[in-house]
Design a protein around this nucleic acid. Structure first.
Length: 462
RNA sequence: GGCUGGGUAGCAAAAUGGUUAUGCGUGGGUUUGCAAAACCUUUGACGCCGGUUCGAUUCCGGCCCCAGCCUCCA
């Protein structure tokens, strides 16, 4: 029984699809005006694990995964103007970059990636419905606002009371709003801004409405899971609930899931603070799987501290796992084994990935123990290890490829290494230990580690 | 100020009312020409103060500290 922490009720609940034949998941994706950073990588990976497991449980053809792309907003317009380019050109570039990064991280593609600019009709229709039903009003400045006071449950998701929000010191005062807490659905066009026609004049949608329009259009008014970063809980998701429920008259989402932040020096990594590393920055120094592993070392709702030291640890951990798998032909995993049962218990307990990683190591140790004496048993353990690792998107490379530095490694250099190893094997046969050690040290300086085993000498990149 | 989370050994990070987390690191051993890898073993922790209990890191209360949201943000 899969149990998921529902942020709407603040409780772990048994997950039951609304319709067992169509499990529906929506995740708030990226605003595409820059490269994705490690915080974005976390959302991608966390919900990739959710998606993979839902597919495992219900069948891939029964799970619909939608992850939107925000391709029009203030920052995009600003950046495009800065660059002196059309905003569509800017967003196209960063959508492409996002796909490259996500693919490298082993993130499966969602079924659809709806974009705000391609959903103008649905967005305008929804705003129209809200105006017609009296939940929204056109203001004197040409903007259309959502009247927060009309939606009684407002604040339920974030645990906020309207009174408390009003008492807060940071609520902006805007003369054209009836209430400072009202939020914008349609922004009237300003000079040098892209705009679309609407019943309220030229303009563009507010941020929140696009997700209400796209999620309900792609998945129906009422769907199973809505996810995103914790910073979206308020106001973004709170506003989505208000808009969607008011516009459709139906219940919106059953389960809300939010992942915790990536931190640097105990502070949230964010674009506004400028303390972020892009996925590309990190990929220049670490294999993408190291990033994925690092993200899975902490539970998805906990904070995750970013540092080189932690990435080094993640790399060492993956090296251990791949070393265990090296030279072992995995057997198809038998159903119903003790490790599998523990894996299921862990992942079904609100996606407890740290517990799963612990299991991977127990299996790696089991493989190493049996490798020499009981090859059959080792192959079985390897099969079990790969079975559970694949469900969290790990250990998908060939062990040799990972240990030798992956596809970036220059093969001619690899040939040179092989030659030196042959020379060293001759020296060892001659019991010329000085020469043997000299070659090993020479390679060591280049970051190549040699390991002499019963089956011969193997090497890996440090 | 209001509202959320969290404080576990050198670092990272789970579970759990009484029994080994796990990884990296450290000490010892096996193995190796010497190493490396691997295996065995050692070291270890539950923010502070009370309460409940035969027994609490785990439940309850108070306190201290940290992070986040209340403004764009995954």
């Amino acid at each position: 029984m899969l149990k998921v922490h529902n942020n709407l009720t603040k409780q772990k609940e048994v997950f039951t699809p609304i319709d067992g034949n169509n499990v529906r998941l929506y995740v708030c994706g990226m605003t595409v005006y820059d490269y994705c950073h490690i915080g974005h990588a976390r959302v991608l990976v966390v919900f990739d694990v959710v998606y993979r497991y839902l597919c495992h449980l219900y069948g891939r053809d029964k799970v619909t995964y939608i992850r939107n792309i925000t391709d029009i907003d203030d920052k995009i317009i600003h950046r495009a103007n800065e660059n002196g380019e059309d905003f569509n050109q800017l967003t196209a570039r960063f959508i492409e970059a996002m796909h490259v990064d996500a693919d490298l991280l082993g993130v499966l593609r969602p079924n659809e990636e709806p974009r705000a600019t391609l959903y103008m009709k649905q967005i305008i229709d929804m705003i129209g419905a809200l105006v017609d039903k009296g939940y929204a009003y056109a203001a004197s400045n040409g903007d259309v606002y959502y009247d927060v006071s009309k939606f009684a449950p407002y604040g339920r998701l974030s645990g906020k009371q309207l009174e408390d929000l009003r008492a807060g010191e940071r609520v902006e005062i805007d003369a054209s709003k009836d209430d400072p807490l009202d939020f914008v659905l349609w922004k009237a066009v300003k000079p040098d801004e892209p705009s679309w026609d609407s019943p309220w004049g030229k303009g563009r949608p507010g941020w929140h409405i696009e997700c209400s329009a796209m999620s309900t259009h792609c998945l129906g008014n009422h769907f199973d899971i809505h996810g995103g970063g914790l910073d979206l809980q308020f106001p973004h998701h709170e506003n989505e609930i208000a808009q969607s429920c008011a516009a459709t008259g139906d219940k919106f989402v059953n389960v809300w899931m939010h992942n915790g932040f990536v931190r640097i020096d105990n502070e949230k990594m964010s674009k506004s603070l400028g303390n972020f590393f892009t996925i590309r920055d990190v990929l220049a120094r670490y294999d993408a799987e190291v990033i994925r592993y690092f993200i899975l070392t902490s539970h998805y709702r906990s904070p995750l501290n970013y540092s080189d030291h932690h990435l080094d640890t993640a790399k060492a951990a993956l090296t251990t796992l791949y070393t265990a798998l090296r030279g072992v032909e995995a057997e198809v995993a038998a159903q119903d084994n003790a490790y599998q049962a523990r894996f299921i218990a862990a992942i079904e307990d609100d996606f407890n990935t740290p517990e799963i990683l612990a299991l991977l190591f127990e299996l790696a140790k089991a493989i190493n123990r049996e490798k020499a004496s009981n090859a059959d048993k080792a192959r079985q353990y390897a099969g079990q290890l790969l079975w559970m690792a694949s469900l969290v998107g790990l250990l998908q490379q060939q062990p040799e490829a990972f240990l030798r530095g992956g596809s970036d490694a220059v093969s001619e250099h690899d040939d040179a290494i092989e030659q030196l190893i042959q020379q060293r094997l001759q020296a060892r046969a001659d019991k010329n230990w000085a020469e043997s050690d000299r070659i090993r040290d020479e390679l060591k300086v280049q970051g190549i580690v040699l390991e002499d085993g019963p089956q011969g000498t193997t090497w890996r990149r440090q």
